Amino acid sequence: MHPASWVGWVLAVMVAALATTNPFYLAVILLAVVLVAVLAPREGPGVISFRALAVFGVVMFALSLGIAAINGSYGDHILFTIPGPEVPRWLGGLRLGGPVSAEGLAGAAIRGLAILCILFAYGVFNGAVSPHRVLRSTPAALFQASLVVTVGLTLLPSSVEDLRRVREMRALRGAPGGWRELPALVVPAIVGGLERSLRLAEAMEARGYGASPPLALAPRLAAAASAPLLIAAAWLWFYETGWRPLAALLAFAAAALLWWWWRAASRARAVSRFDREPLPAAERAGLLVAAASALGLLALRLTGRGALTYNPFAGLPLPGFEPLPALLAAALAWPAVLLIARPAPARGAAERDSRLAAEPAP
């Protein structure tokens, strides 16, 4: 699949996961992401990085539940009580221990599900798309940002690969294992990943990837002014319902300023590509589906429809479930349809490509 398709899918999953607090819809989004993760192509470091992110997401989910239990929670359904010290009230409601309610654990689980969906989607993207393809497909206006993203995408796979290599070398030398030896594994892996990313950044800088003429002052000021306009528009829309027309006007002005900066930044840098990777029509349709799904869930959240919001502290009621939001959440699995329909490469061609990739350059 084209890198733009994967980027659009990840952004749609992120918007959908943050637009709802209903555990049923979050579960549908997570199942869609897992289905795409099973069918997405991953080779070498991509498999290892996806596993690392998956483990990290599960750990974050468990950590959110643990923090909710340690801090205690309010609610009518008390499950158990954790002994803890008395905390003064002037500390702003901080609690250490105390009664743990089912409402508090449900709220922590909902937050953990949203984080899990985003981390799984990013893991699929990191394993299925090469950073160099992302750099080639980036528009000229975002070229500088794409350099940073490319270096960042190479950090996790290289660190995981270094961790596996250090672990194998320590095992061959008869070094003891266990949690006490974890710093001896993690520190060399992180240092090696950082050094590899820095070497990549230096090589790209030496080849002129970061050289670009400075942008004019007016477009830079327009881009800087768009951020406070968007913040003011969001504040007026959510907290001052009588000023929503002004909020819409400010959001339109911010979008116009961003479009002006985008046009000026695209013209300031001339980019030549020897081989343009086309975006197939099926993937364009998939991007439209992803945009419709994310915008549809966001519109339902802003209008208060579709039972997208769920408050477990209101007596722990059963979350609502409606067909339209569920279909919009399930539509995020559209890459799985393309991956199933895509013909598998021939065995001889795959072996030839892997053999040519393994041969050293002259």
Results as ranks from 00 to 15, higher is better:
residue 18 L to A: 09
residue 299 A to K: 06
residue 108 A to D: 07
residue 154 T to F: 08
residue 43 E to K: 02
residue 225 A to S: 14
residue 237 W to K: 05
residue 36 V to T: 11
residue 8 G to M: 09
residue 211 A to L: 13
residue 59 V to P: 02
residue 11 L to M: 08
residue 259 W to A: 15
residue 62 A to R: 02
residue 176 P to Y: 01
residue 133 R to V: 06
residue 143 F to M: 08
residue 217 L to A: 13
residue 289 V to T: 11
residue 10 V to E: 02
residue 184 A to K: 04
residue 135 L to E: 15
residue 178 G to E: 03
residue 13 V to P: 02
residue 227 A to G: 10
residue 302 L to H: 03
residue 111 R to W: 00
residue 185 L to C: 03
residue 275 D to I: 00
residue 233 A to R: 02
residue 317 P to R: 07
residue 246 L to T: 13
residue 203 A to W: 05
residue 283 E to T: 00
residue 234 A to L: 14
residue 124 V to N: 09
residue 289 V to Y: 00
residue 179 W to N: 03
residue 161 E to M: 04
residue 294 A to L: 04
residue 285 A to N: 05
residue 252 F to S: 15
residue 324 L to T: 07
residue 165 R to I: 05
residue 339 L to P: 13
residue 80 F to Y: 09
residue 90 W to Q: 12
residue 67 I to W: 15
residue 93 G to V: 12
residue 55 V to G: 01
residue 236 L to V: 03
residue 42 R to A: 10
residue 68 A to T: 12
residue 89 R to G: 15
residue 286 G to A: 13
residue 127 G to N: 14
residue 171 A to W: 02
residue 278 P to L: 01
residue 219 P to T: 12
residue 205 E to M: 08
residue 118 I to D: 06
residue 258 L to R: 13
residue 76 D to E: 15
residue 128 A to S: 15
residue 246 L to E: 13
residue 73 S to D: 15
residue 7 V to M: 11
residue 216 A to M: 08
residue 38 V to F: 06
residue 132 H to N: 14
residue 141 A to N: 10
residue 25 Y to I: 07
residue 248 A to V: 14
residue 124 V to K: 07
residue 178 G to T: 10
residue 187 V to K: 08
residue 221 L to Q: 09
residue 124 V to P: 05
residue 51 R to S: 09
residue 277 E to R: 00
residue 92 G to L: 02
residue 212 S to C: 01
residue 68 A to Q: 11
residue 214 P to D: 14
residue 118 I to A: 03
residue 172 L to K: 07
residue 37 A to L: 03
residue 15 V to H: 04
residue 326 A to K: 01
residue 71 N to D: 13
residue 120 F to M: 10
residue 37 A to V: 01
residue 60 M to Q: 14
residue 189 A to F: 07
residue 232 A to H: 10
residue 256 A to N: 13
residue 352 R to Y: 10
residue 125 F to G: 11
residue 82 I to R: 12
residue 248 A to C: 01
residue 61 F to D: 06
residue 208 G to P: 12
residue 184 A to S: 07
residue 238 F to E: 15
residue 185 L to T: 02
residue 193 G to S: 03
residue 332 L to R: 00
residue 292 A to M: 05
residue 309 T to Y: 03
residue 177 G to N: 09
residue 256 A to D: 15
residue 2 H to I: 06
residue 291 A to Y: 04
residue 259 W to E: 15
residue 297 L to I: 12
residue 234 A to T: 15
residue 304 G to T: 12
residue 256 A to K: 09
residue 11 L to K: 07
residue 55 V to A: 09
residue 322 E to L: 04
residue 55 V to D: 07
residue 3 P to A: 08
residue 339 L to V: 11
residue 24 F to V: 10
residue 39 L to V: 10
residue 43 E to C: 06
residue 88 P to S: 14
residue 354 S to R: 13
